[in-house]
Design a protein around this nucleic acid. Sequence first.
DNA 1: CCCTTGACTATCT
DNA 2: GAGATAGCCAAGG
Length: 112
Amino acid sequence: MVDAKNIFDKAIWQTVGKIACGRVMSYGEVARASGYPRHARMVSKAMSRSADPLPWHRVVRADRTLAFDIAGELYKKQQTLLEKEGVQIISGKVVVADIDKDLDELLWGPDE
DNA sequence: CCCTTGACTATCT
DNA sequence: GAGATAGCCAAGG
């Protein structure tokens, strides 16, 4: 038996697992890279269903904000994990050198 | 089959 | 920048 759901989940886990340290991907990007565009919402489900040590903390929203409530425990956990991998959170947004567009602004701090 | 929900996204105000 | 709206797709009641 082959459930499409299983295939989908597996593809998502594999894509997420390919994300390197210090790098982040949005749900839409993960879904698209897995071959399922517009399945951003399904990505969240797939990761929740996964019992494997998936680097879910490297998956953020399209605007680089964390997907959880700012006052939630998961939010703080994700932020801690990201900072531990060299990723910093400024103004609630994930800052990665991969963006390299406004490095000056990043270094100086867009919020301050 | 209809309705609600969700770790989403893009656009408009 | 923040809130509201619409679009999107799948799972569960």
